[in-house]
């Protein structure tokens, strides 16, 4: 497993660096028309970082819920470790999503925060998973910790699509600012987006495996400590 982790880190590094190069040197600069003037939007480059981390964080939450459900059916400790590690990474990537999104929002819309559906969904998603960590820290017994947090990860993952739709039925006072669906993407832009998406996914898997191994080692250390009467 260690070898696979290293290999994945290497692939992730190559793809992410290639992604950076593609984003800055290959993908065309976006030009928009504003008040009759043509403006080139450099801030759009953050898109090539923002989309990969957003995708990875959602993937990590879904994987976390899948391993949570597996733990509940199979009752094997390793599924709890994988579920926890994945939710943890999902949260970490989620912080990056909000951070990179915020920078873009500030430069593009002039505010740090807008109650726009996508942003709001993500904020609630992060609050939802913050509860996961509080829940984990509030249970001392290992087996109930695993059981309750696995159940919660399933509940949280079911909530996400509802949050997504619920926010969209509230009549919005804000005009539609940005709609990616309307923008046809240039082939080079698509490549510049997909390469870091794959890179980030590799990074996520590598980190997941690494975290999983540390959790296993942690368990072994605890076991040895108990053996020694500590």
């Amino acid at each position: 497993m260690e070898k696979a982790t290293k290999l994945l880190f290497a692939i992730a590094a190559i793809l992410l660096l290639a992604g950076l190069a593609l984003a800055f040197f290959v993908a065309p600069q976006i030009v928009i028309q504003k008040n009759g003037q043509y403006l080139s939007v450099f801030s759009q480059k953050i898109f090539y970082f923002h989309v990969p981390v957003a995708w990875t964080s959602l993937l990590a939450f879904i994987v976390g819920a899948v391993f949570g459900a597996l733990f509940l059916t199979k009752k094997e400790r390793r599924y709890d470790f994988l579920s926890f590690a994945s939710v943890e990474l999902g949260f970490l990537f989620g912080v990056l999503v909000m951070w990179s999104g915020d920078i873009w929002t500030r430069s593009e819309w002039g505010t740090w925060w807008e109650w726009e559906p996508r942003l709001t969904t993500y904020l609630i998603l992060m609050l939802l998973y913050s509860g996961y960590f509080v829940l984990r820290s509030a249970v001392s017994e290992e087996s109930s910790k695993a059981r309750l947090s696995a159940a919660y990860s399933v509940i949280a993952s079911v909530t996400v699509p509802f949050t997504f739709f619920a926010i969209r039925i509230i009549p919005s006072v804000h005009p539609v600012v940005l709609s990616m669906d309307g923008v046809a993407m240039e082939p080079t832009m698509l490549v510049a987006m997909l390469v870091p998406v794959f890179g980030m996914t590799c990074l996520y898997i590598a980190l997941l495996l690494m975290r999983y191994q540390t959790l296993l080692i942690g368990e072994e250390v605890d076991y040895l400590k108990n053996e020694l009467g500590g």
């Binding site: 609050l127 939802l128 509860g131 509080v134 249970v139 739709f165 619920a166």
Partner: peptide
């Protein structure tokens, strides 16, 4: 859990937001 009624709002409110 150890936190009991302290924990409920933290996990209940985000799930009930929809």
């Amino acid at each position: 859990t150890k936190m009991r009624d302290m924990l409920l709002p933290l996990i209940f409110l985000p799930v009930i937001l929809p």
